[in-house]
Computed example of a mutant assay.
Amino acid sequence: MARDRILLVGAAYQDIILDVPHFPQEDTKLQVRNLVRRWGGNVVNIARVLRALDDNLDIHLVVPLPSESTSKEFLEFCARINVTVSPLFSDATEFPVAYVTRSLDRNTRTILNYSNVPQFDQTTIQHVLDLISSHEYSWLHFEGRTPEFLEKCLDAPEIASKVNVSLELEKPDRLWLLPLASKVSTVFSNCEFLRKVHRPDWNADFRERCLSFLNSGVSPNCFITSGSSVTFGSVAGDPVFMPIEKVSSKESTGAGDSFAAACIYYLMRNAGGTEETVRFANLVAYQFLESKDNDISSSSGSSDTLNSERMPIPCDFAERLRN
């Protein structure tokens, strides 16, 4: 049986997560309660979750990176989880960093990104097209970043003819990516992006915004996370809203990416319709967040809640995510 091959195109970061009792005022000092470092970014998180779900997937990453020596630890991490990297090295000597400062009293976060790595350009486009020409991919996923790069890729015959192509639309300051949502088979977004899409004075709730977004000409396969109590999904235009199980972990970085990874996996296997897909993705995102606790056994999910009816989640899923 041929292995499913997936191509993920986006940026890689080192996430540095700082827990503070409250957000500091200007010109003050504050003691950090806890510090966590891990590799992140949309496509890196998706790769981690896909690998934890299935050892047999052939996962390829295309990411702009600093120099080869600076990227050594990241490449070792990818090799450890058996993810193939097609690196685009540059002369940069610092790895991109995302500083995530989380306020413990309000359970909110502020993210500061730093990167001097050159982003996607014509060389990257040709690199991606060459990979697609030389491999048979079951799924292509693009992080929503540079519009010129994405437009040229999605309009290329090598990609336009592919059935399974997904796009991440989550950054509220990237509304110029919205026209590309009709050029892919699946779109992943969130409530922050939707608030920017609609006029600011429209006092609509999450459900109204989701349905309006779905009917605006985007792909009929559309998934939107709210970050709180409910997620939205549509497979072939069939909309479903589903509650989210409350998690004990207060750190939500990467939750939307884990949800997207589960949707990709479920849709790629043609395992079910909208309700089954969203339920499975919610369960995977739940386990992704719970796996961040120091003690895996503290997870509140029983063996019954770790599996969807049609697509089992590996019983050691949380342990796999720690690799």
Results as ranks from 00 to 15, higher is better:
residue 5 R to F: 15
residue 10 G to I: 05
residue 20 V to H: 07
residue 26 E to W: 05
residue 29 K to E: 15
residue 32 V to N: 01
residue 35 L to K: 13
residue 38 R to V: 11
residue 39 W to A: 03
residue 44 V to P: 04
residue 45 N to R: 13
residue 46 I to S: 08
residue 57 L to D: 02
residue 64 P to C: 12
residue 71 S to I: 13
residue 73 E to G: 11
residue 75 L to E: 13
residue 79 A to D: 14
residue 79 A to T: 14
residue 82 N to A: 12
residue 83 V to A: 06
residue 84 T to Q: 15
residue 86 S to I: 14
residue 87 P to V: 08
residue 91 D to V: 13
residue 97 V to P: 00
residue 102 R to M: 11
residue 105 D to K: 15
residue 110 T to L: 04
residue 118 P to C: 03
residue 132 I to P: 06
residue 138 S to G: 05
residue 141 H to F: 14
residue 150 L to M: 03
residue 151 E to R: 13
residue 152 K to R: 14
residue 153 C to M: 00
residue 155 D to V: 10
residue 163 V to F: 13
residue 166 S to L: 07
residue 168 E to D: 12
residue 170 E to S: 06
residue 171 K to R: 14
residue 176 W to D: 10
residue 177 L to H: 06
residue 178 L to N: 04
residue 178 L to K: 11
residue 179 P to L: 07
residue 189 S to K: 05
residue 192 E to W: 14
residue 194 L to P: 00
residue 197 V to E: 12
residue 199 R to V: 06
residue 200 P to H: 13
residue 204 A to Y: 09
residue 208 E to W: 08
residue 208 E to Q: 13
residue 209 R to Y: 08
residue 211 L to I: 05
residue 218 V to T: 05
residue 219 S to E: 06
residue 226 S to T: 11
residue 229 S to D: 13
residue 234 S to N: 02
residue 236 A to T: 04
residue 238 D to G: 07
residue 240 V to K: 02
residue 242 M to P: 04
residue 248 S to F: 03
residue 249 S to Q: 07
residue 250 K to Q: 13
residue 254 G to F: 10
residue 260 A to Y: 10
residue 260 A to P: 07
residue 265 Y to T: 01
residue 271 A to W: 03
residue 275 E to T: 06
residue 278 V to W: 00
residue 282 N to D: 06
residue 288 F to I: 08
residue 289 L to C: 12
residue 297 S to T: 13
residue 297 S to H: 07
residue 299 S to F: 03
residue 302 S to D: 15
residue 303 S to Q: 09
residue 307 N to E: 11
residue 311 M to Y: 09
residue 313 I to K: 08
residue 313 I to G: 05
residue 314 P to C: 10
residue 321 L to C: 12
